[in-house]
Amino acid sequence: MRGLDPIFQVLRTVPPLAWLPLSLAAFREAQPSAIFVIFITSVWPIIINTAVGVRNVPQDYRNVAAVIRLRGPAFFWKIVLPAAAPYIFTGLRIGIGLSWLAIVAAEMLIGGVGIGFFVWDAWNSSNLSDIIVALVYVGLVGFALDRIVALAGRIATRGTQES
């Protein structure tokens, strides 16, 4: 954690859309570049929350694993993953929200298709009612995605995760 955390913190603080020119240069196409921007936006809260979850595995769990000589993959699957799962799903919920934000922003800049392009096109056409409808749509889809991930988290963690 001490070695990787500074790297994660530096990369995490780079604004997502600042990655767009580099991804366009690397991929030379709009769609893979947008996907990369979405990925780079959403991956940091997932990684950081997962690391916190793994670091916060209760010592009692580790002691029980030592007593029953649980090691390697069995220790990971039976102790670490279940204990870290609430943190992982919290990171996923944050990541989903950020990725939805990045989708809209990337589509505004790249153009062509999508809700971001629709909002930008409506702005250029001075059609504020379409923008309001799009914003409500974005909010509702974001809410639905959050609820889906929260439900998956409750199922995966057997209800131990807060909603």
Rank of each mutant, 00 (worst) to 15 (best):
I38N: 01
I68R: 12
L101S: 09
S99F: 03
G97E: 07
A26M: 11
F36Y: 12
K78N: 11
A105T: 13
P6D: 02
W77M: 08
A18S: 14
V80H: 07
D60H: 12
P15A: 09
M1H: 03
W19N: 02
V119F: 00
L24Q: 05
R12A: 01
S126W: 09
W77Y: 14
N127C: 07
E107S: 04
A51Q: 08
I110F: 06
G95F: 04
L101V: 05
R158S: 11
I68H: 08
F36T: 03
I48N: 05
V67H: 09
F76C: 08
N124E: 10
F76A: 13
G116M: 05
A74E: 10
A34E: 09
P73Q: 13
L92N: 03
L81N: 10
F75G: 08
R147W: 06
F143K: 14
G91W: 02
A150P: 04
F143H: 11
L101G: 09
A150R: 10
Y137R: 09
S129L: 12
Q161W: 00
L101F: 06
A51Y: 14
T90S: 15
A74S: 11
M1I: 12
G112N: 10
L81D: 09
F143S: 07
S129C: 03
S99Q: 10
A30M: 08
Q161N: 06
I38F: 00
R71H: 15
L109A: 10
L22H: 03
E29R: 13
L109H: 03
T90F: 08
L135C: 12
G153Q: 02
F39N: 04
S163M: 06
L70N: 10
G3D: 05
I94Y: 06
P45V: 03
W19V: 03
A66P: 06
